[in-house]
């Protein structure tokens, strides 16, 4: 399998699925299901239909995975499958799909920012805002070493080696700092989710 710019995490999981470990696909589903739903919701609006099309898209992706050669990002490949599945879904129900395709980046932007989204209730919008605020505040309150590590990783998308070089510490330390930072943020997020 050729790997151009494929996300290393996706690459590890995809290779495991291709070698016969079905469990790794579950982690890919958990990772991408909400992003895929955002794209699919551009074509179908009903919650149940979104869930059905998402499920169908993932099943098609699983079947087609042996043919995935890593020439594009896994998500881009998955996105195409999702868009085709959604269009086919509309055609089979005699509904007309959108005339023009939506670019991956545009679709993500629209899905994340479209305030007029049918499913985007005021409660949900409020939750998203609370979540975003809580995450930013928690990051700001983190000890400096953890804040630097998580900022360089999540905002700057730097590798562990680059972060280690900048922070002048071993790669293992970067790894543990990132884990500790994520655990602190996760604890806040969990409280927020339970409260909602």
């Amino acid at each position: 399998m050729k790997h151009s710019d494929i996300d290393p995490s996706d690459q590890q999981l995809v290779e495991r699925v291709q070698r016969g470990d079905k469990r790794a696909f579950d982690l890919l589903v958990l990772k991408y299901q909400f992003k895929l739903q955002s794209i699919i919701s551009r074509f179908v609006r009903d919650r149940d239909e979104i869930a059905d099309v998402t499920q169908e898209a993932f099943i098609k992706a699983y079947r087609a995975l042996p043919g995935f050669r890593g020439e594009s990002q896994f998500y881009t490949w998955l996105y195409r499958i999702a868009v085709n599945t959604a269009k086919n879904y509309l055609v089979t129900r005699s509904r007309r799909p959108p005339s023009a395709d939506i670019d991956v980046a545009d679709a993500e932007y629209l899905a994340a920012n479209d305030q007029l989204h049918d499913l985007d209730s005021p409660e949900n919008r409020l939750f998203c805002e609370q979540l975003d605020g809580a995450i930013r505040k928690t990051i700001a309150d983190l000890p400096e070493d953890l804040r630097t590590a998580v900022t360089l990783r999540e905002y700057e998308d730097l590798s562990y080696d680059d972060i280690a070089e900048i922070m002048q510490c071993p790669t293992g330390t970067v790894r543990s700092r990132l884990f500790r930072a994520r655990e602190i943020i996760d604890a806040k997020v969990l409280v927020l989710i339970k409260g909602n």
Binding site: Q33, T54, H117, C128, E154
Partner: peptide
């Protein structure tokens, strides 16, 4: 969320 990608259409169908 940090990357500004969270949307409210979240149905856990895993």
């Amino acid at each position: 969320s940090i990357k500004g990608e969270v949307s409210a259409t979240a149905i856990d169908c895993s």
